[in-house]
């Protein structure tokens, strides 16, 4: 079978899987950003127990494997009566995991905002929430976006694991086709290229654009 024949027969299925991968990536990315902001902020809270809670979350999710977390959420949580469908379990696991990495990025970026900015905000007598939201976070955002570019690629790669709980993403479809045809080089090779292109033509340009836009709006260019 020529490669073009292969694409004609199995291409649609791979594309369907790609669409699921894109959905998983977007949902996991949104969740990861929310988690990262939440725990990044908790990590610098003045209250010690709050900081400790954030540390535990971050260390647990960074200290164990995404695959372990995914299995735990999908297989163990239902035992406690929390049943999540596999699609949701998939992006939730990826989002929770990468969110923990993101939390460290958020914390680092916030702490890298010069002290003078904190003091100036205090001098204006802004409320703590407003200080963070209007003065500190926007500046931190500029600092952290490059690191988020790498994290988003990790999110995309991380979603490949959801195939292990039978979410029909690109990885899953590739395995299915491999199982029925044994055209391993063609199917896995094509899947690798699709992932590469999703990153190279999707995630990376998007993050670069975001970096530029934010920098411009902050008057940094």
């Amino acid at each position: 079978m020529s490669y073009s024949d292969f694409l004609v027969i199995h291409g649609p299925r791979l594309l369907g899987g790609t669409w699921i991968t894109v959905q998983q990536t977007v949902l996991a990315a949104v969740l990861a950003v929310l988690i990262a902001l939440l725990f990044g902020l908790l990590k610098i809270s003045p209250l010690r127990p709050v900081r400790a809670l954030a540390s535990v979350y971050i260390e647990v999710f960074r200290g164990t494997s995404l695959l372990v977390q995914l299995y735990w959420i999908f297989f163990v949580l239902p035992l406690f009566g929390i049943t999540i469908d596999k699609f949701t379990a998939g992006f939730v696991a990826v989002g929770l995991n990468l969110g923990a990495y993101g939390a460290e990025v958020v914390r680092g970026a916030i702490q890298s905002v010069p002290r003078g900015q904190w003091e100036a905000a205090l001098a204006l007598n802004l409320s703590p929430a407003r200080r963070m939201w209007r003065i500190i976070l926007p500046q931190a955002l500029v600092n952290m976006l490059p690191a988020w570019g790498n994290l988003m690629i990790e999110v995309l790669k991380g979603t490949a694991l959801v195939a292990m709980i039978s979410v029909a993403d690109l990885m899953f479809e590739a395995r299915q086709i491999n199982g029925s045809t044994y055209l391993s080089a063609q199917v896995f090779g094509t899947a690798l290229v699709i992932y590469y292109l999703l990153g190279r033509l999707g995630v990376t340009p998007l993050m670069r654009w975001l970096e530029k836009t934010v920098a411009r709006r902050m008057g940094r260019v």
Binding site: L156, K157, L161, A163, M164, S184, F188
Partner: peptide
């Protein structure tokens, strides 16, 4: 290599080599 999933690379090596 850096921008594609490791799990897919594992499958690739394992199944493609026999081909």
């Amino acid at each position: 290599i850096r921008s594609t999933p490791l799990i897919l690379q594992i499958f690739f090596v394992f199944y493609v080599a026999p081909q």
